[in-house]
Simulated scan of single mutants.
Amino acid sequence: MSISYADLGDEVIGREREVELLLAALEAGAHVVLEGPPGTGKTTLLRAVAARQHVPFIFVEGNAELTPGRLVGHFDPAQVLAQGYTPEIFVDGPLLEAMRSGGLLYIEELNRVPEETLNVLLTSMSEGEVHVPRLGSVRAADGFSFVAAMNPYDSVGTARISGAIYDRTCRIAMGYQSPEAENQIGVLRAPEVPDDWRAKVIELVRSTRDHSDVRVGSSVRGVIDLVKVASALAQARGIPVTDWHLGLDAATVALSGRVRLHESSSRTPEEVVRELYEAVFGREPKDEDDDSGEA
């Protein structure tokens, strides 16, 4: 079934090029690696594409605990004692589930997966089959695709992906969305707020990606959470969402955990968020000043 960007509706915003490239790669029978920072819509994109193509979507969280056995499957130990190693008691893991159903296997955080598990994937990608001890060979049904995502900026708990994986996959780089796309996402997925104030929130979030002390800035998720927290605070305090101090509190809550500083930085995330907040919303107003949040 052929689909296009327009078929995805409001689920995927500002990703026309990436959707086109992904659909072309999958149509060509290729396996794909989506590479980009967190919050850039990699999982959302894959879920939407799989749903529109009406193919099974099998999600796997990549981490050090993803052993070959967990990925491929296992014989039910209790049944083995009674029946022996028969195919009927084998419990498919996500890889075999995707292969048998011709589905889309999606592994998040590929560079956190142990090398021995990646070696199992290599066989399924290059040969279209996997050999399981005592079960035999399992061939992939038509339509089986493997798509992985990885964050190149996070080095903690990650490993370098081998050239063998890259040689068997197509790579699509996914950067941050445009300001216009992030505004549209904010309108759709966060409470209603004044347009000019939301525009400043987007400017603030985007500025976290360029600060000299910041290694990884906030994604558009920071916009959504900041607006949600500010709206809740406004209701609790009985003041406008544009209040300067309210906005700073919301920004600190929503962004200080998302910005990751360089190890050489002597500053705290809260200090960086306040600096950026003041650059966008102006310095802290004095008592006699208008506290509406206008710079």
Score class of each variant (00 low, 15 high):
203 E>R: 12
38 P>E: 11
150 M>C: 09
41 G>P: 13
147 V>A: 07
192 E>N: 13
29 G>T: 06
12 V>P: 06
204 L>T: 06
174 M>L: 15
249 D>Q: 08
203 E>F: 00
172 I>G: 06
278 E>R: 15
175 G>P: 03
290 D>R: 13
154 D>S: 09
200 K>P: 00
79 Q>C: 00
4 S>K: 14
241 V>F: 11
45 L>W: 04
251 A>P: 00
174 M>G: 03
245 H>I: 06
272 V>P: 01
79 Q>A: 14
234 A>E: 12
99 M>N: 04
289 D>L: 05
265 S>H: 02
1 M>G: 04
92 D>Q: 13
39 G>Y: 02
170 C>D: 13
63 N>S: 14
40 T>Y: 06
196 D>W: 15
42 K>R: 13
139 R>W: 05
264 S>D: 13
238 G>F: 09
25 A>V: 05
18 E>Y: 01
169 T>M: 15
31 H>C: 01
36 G>C: 01
157 G>M: 10
75 F>V: 02
127 E>F: 01
44 T>F: 04
211 H>Q: 00
198 R>I: 07
253 V>A: 12
236 A>T: 03
171 R>S: 15
218 S>C: 14
172 I>P: 03
167 D>P: 05
21 L>A: 14
239 I>D: 04
33 V>L: 14
146 F>H: 02
132 V>Q: 04
157 G>D: 10
92 D>T: 12
158 T>I: 06
88 E>A: 10
291 D>V: 08
220 V>P: 08
25 A>L: 11
215 R>I: 00
224 I>Q: 13
3 I>E: 07
22 L>N: 09
227 V>H: 01
141 A>Q: 14
228 K>S: 14
129 E>I: 02
204 L>S: 08
109 E>W: 07
69 G>D: 14
172 I>F: 09
257 G>I: 03
4 S>N: 12
118 L>T: 05
57 F>C: 05
5 Y>W: 11
130 V>F: 04
76 D>F: 04
173 A>L: 12
45 L>Y: 06
168 R>V: 00
45 L>C: 07
103 G>T: 11
177 Q>A: 15
29 G>W: 05
120 V>G: 02
80 V>Y: 06
146 F>D: 01
294 E>M: 02
140 A>W: 03
248 L>W: 05
246 L>K: 08
235 Q>A: 15
44 T>L: 14
1 M>C: 01
192 E>G: 06
211 H>M: 02
98 A>C: 11
179 P>V: 11
150 M>Y: 11
257 G>Q: 08
287 D>I: 06
194 P>A: 13
263 E>F: 14
180 E>Q: 15
279 A>L: 05
97 E>L: 13
61 E>D: 12
244 W>M: 01
246 L>H: 10
265 S>Q: 06
134 R>D: 04
163 G>H: 10
237 R>K: 14
132 V>P: 10
82 A>G: 05
198 R>Y: 09
276 L>E: 06
221 R>Y: 06
186 G>P: 06
291 D>N: 12
192 E>P: 05
241 V>K: 10
